[in-house]
Amino acid sequence: MNVMAERQHLGQGTTTSWEKFWYILGCIYLGAAYFQKVPVKKALSEYGLVEMTSAEKFWYVVQCILFGFGYFAKVTIKKALSEVRSPAGFPTA
């Protein structure tokens, strides 16, 4: 099975029907998918790419209080983001 994804751009990406299905299923299962998304959004927000909702900010703090889970998850994500190469013509700081 050849699973070749189309190239997507930040802010213009799409999800397939199956990705939407599995995300919803993951959220139903004790909010697991949602709680995994929160540290990712925190890392992206620190790069100025997204804004977190007040609910996401709340759950991020809760995750940080619980053995630092949210913080340690964010650190790994920020490390990966710091290694992203900018495409030609894309402004960098």
Rank of each mutant, 00 (worst) to 15 (best):
Y23L: 11
T53A: 11
L44E: 03
A93F: 10
A88V: 12
V50P: 00
T16Y: 02
Q8A: 06
Y71C: 04
A88R: 12
K37Q: 13
T15Q: 07
Q8S: 10
E83R: 14
S86F: 08
L30S: 15
I77A: 00
K42S: 00
S54W: 11
V50T: 03
S54A: 08
W22I: 04
V38Q: 01
Y60P: 00
F72N: 13
L30N: 15
G68L: 08
A43C: 11
K57P: 01
G13M: 14
L10G: 12
K57Y: 04
I77C: 02
G13T: 15
Y71W: 15
G26I: 01
A5N: 14
M4V: 13
T76E: 08
Y47T: 01
Y29G: 06
S17K: 13
Q36L: 13
A55G: 04
A5M: 14
E83A: 13
F90K: 14
A55F: 07
K42A: 01
W18I: 09
Y47I: 02
K74T: 08
F58M: 10
I24H: 13
E51R: 05
V75S: 01
S54R: 06
M1E: 07
E51T: 12
K78N: 10
S17E: 11
Y47N: 05
G70V: 01
G68I: 06
T14P: 01
F72H: 15
K41D: 05
G48T: 08
L25F: 15
E83K: 15
F58A: 08
L81A: 06
I65D: 01
L66Q: 14
M1C: 08
A32S: 09
V84W: 09
F35P: 00
I77M: 02
K57N: 07
A33I: 03
K42G: 00
N2K: 12
G13E: 15
A88M: 11
L25I: 14
R85S: 12
Y47S: 03
S45P: 05
F72L: 15
N2P: 15
Q63W: 01
T14D: 06
M52F: 06
K20R: 09
K78P: 02
F21G: 03
A80Q: 13
K79S: 12
G31C: 04
F35Y: 13
I65C: 06
S54M: 05
H9I: 11
G68E: 03
K37L: 09
A80H: 13
E56F: 02
S54H: 05
F67Y: 12
Q36F: 12
A73H: 04
K37G: 02
L10I: 13
Q8I: 03
P39S: 02
Q8P: 05
L81E: 01
G31V: 02
N2M: 08
A32G: 05
W22N: 09
T53H: 10
T53K: 08
M1N: 07
G48L: 04
G89A: 08
L30T: 15
K57G: 03
K41V: 08
A55D: 09
A93I: 09
I65P: 00
S86M: 07
F69L: 12
F58I: 04
G13H: 15
M1R: 08
G26E: 06
P39F: 00
R7V: 11
T76A: 10
F72T: 10
V75T: 03
S17G: 12
I65G: 01
G11V: 02
F72K: 14
P87S: 06
R85F: 10
K37M: 09
K42P: 00
Y60G: 00
K20C: 03
S82Q: 13
P39G: 00
Y71H: 09
